[in-house]
Design a protein around this nucleic acid. Sequence first.
DNA 1: GCGACAG
DNA 2: ATCTTGTCGC
Length: 255
Amino acid sequence: MEPPPDRERFRPTPGRSREEMEALQRDIAASARFADDLPFDPATVGDPDGPLVAGVDQAFLTDRDPEMAVSAVVVRRGDEVIERVHAISPVEIPYVPGLLAFREGGPILDAFAELETDPDLALFDGSGRIHFREAGLATHVGVALDLPSVGVAKSLLCGTPARDTAALAAGERVPIRGDDRMSASATDTVVGYAYQSRQYPDSRRINPLYVSPGHRVSAETAVDCVARCGGDYKLPEPTRLADAYADEVKRSLAE
DNA sequence: GCGACAG
DNA sequence: ATCTTGTCGC
């Protein structure tokens, strides 16, 4: 799938100043919908006859002249893999906290362009609304494709947990509220959740995931969808499969 | 000067 | 993200 013609302006292309990138992010946030606007019933995510859920992740070939990105997208219905694609693209923008979508967004869109299936929902490795300008990777790509999306990050970029998240039991979720490091419009509103997908039985601890709406989903529905994606690991299965696939492609390119 | 942050 | 073996515990 490709971005709709009228959304080409959201594509995270290189050659922009930091100010221009931040301005585009404010534009992206203004176009994002942090409320449910889904073509399916979120309660059916993970069901054999439920929606098509895509997992997205990348691996990098740092030891190349232009650094190369391997972007992978794995689409599932229930626990069955319907389609799996990848793209290998040059990385043209360095990683800067807050501007991750500009480094990874382009290569990810290259992978989506290879997709024959149209997913109903996509899970990204990174933040959505939990972002300084409410326009993290999941939001940026979701808005660019006008595709319902969710951000699943392994660490918290900004925002404040409603209570301590150090020792949550499996399945527990704690609201993350917008704080002073974020757009004023997010202040005190629930921009996402810390979600303990897995936990050890003993005293060892696993950090929670930080789930936030990307586009066309509310914070509550975003966590519900992640919880329904299942899997036996910390990361939801779609994302974990995309991660493994990107690594597989990367290793096959070793020299 | 301090703060300090996805992948 | 990436560089990387063994090791602790169920």
